[in-house]
Simulated scan of single mutants.
Amino acid sequence: MASRARTKRYHHGDLPAALVDATLELIGEQGLQGFSVAEAARRTNVSPAAPYRHFSDRDELLAAAATRAAEELRERFTAATAAHAKPPERLAAAAAAYVRFAAERRAMFEVLFGAGLEKARYPRLEAATSGLMADLVEVAQALAPGRDAEAAWSLVLAMAALAQGHATLLIDHAFGAGACDEVVDEAERRVAAATRALVRGRGVLFAELGFAPG
């Protein structure tokens, strides 16, 4: 059914999107190591040469998939943070959304954070990832001394490290076997708690990094 849907989309002139669909499907089944442009073409019912009319090489197709992933993650951040008014809760909600994204969009998570792409080579990918980080920095500025953007960036990086760590632990079954709702809920609860603790102790972080008190 999915293959027929992709073929129909191609006949309407959307081969790049269909190839991204196939790429994410392949990564979800076999991981990044199991992905090939030729197999993505086969699943999209086009010739092995057809993808290269839109993507110069394997990495450019992966970058398109990573861009879609970054755009979805940004949408999830926006929805999660909009549900809260206070900056600490907004950052905690974003961290929880990151972990759930890793659980529910494993292929997207893998291509966005595990493909080793040089983002500067792909303007759309760089814009998408920069945009989602900028959204978080804007939230964090309310917690930074003098609303300093660099201090806010440092706080967001620390939060992202917490979220990445919890997402990796979730994938490694540290919170329980599988990715059932209870396991994901527990990972979300823990990363949100860790983020709140980080925010409460941000003064120590800022001092260690040399930011003057506000």
Rank of each mutant, 00 (worst) to 15 (best):
60 E>F: 02
124 R>S: 12
4 R>T: 12
118 E>R: 15
208 E>W: 08
164 Q>N: 12
67 T>F: 01
58 R>K: 15
155 L>W: 10
52 Y>H: 10
179 A>D: 10
173 H>Y: 09
34 G>H: 07
66 A>C: 03
102 A>N: 09
208 E>S: 13
167 A>N: 04
25 E>Q: 13
40 A>N: 04
196 R>Y: 07
179 A>V: 04
170 L>D: 06
179 A>H: 11
155 L>K: 07
104 E>W: 03
22 A>E: 11
174 A>S: 14
3 S>N: 07
27 I>A: 07
48 P>H: 11
176 G>H: 05
205 L>Y: 09
196 R>H: 15
4 R>L: 13
89 E>S: 12
132 L>Q: 11
104 E>I: 01
54 H>K: 08
196 R>I: 12
38 A>C: 01
112 L>A: 13
40 A>E: 03
190 R>V: 10
161 A>N: 09
9 R>Y: 00
56 S>E: 14
47 S>N: 00
57 D>N: 14
125 L>G: 06
41 A>K: 05
171 I>T: 12
21 D>P: 05
36 S>V: 05
29 E>W: 06
110 E>P: 02
36 S>C: 11
164 Q>W: 06
57 D>K: 01
149 A>S: 14
2 A>P: 01
173 H>F: 03
190 R>Y: 03
32 L>V: 11
141 Q>G: 13
9 R>H: 08
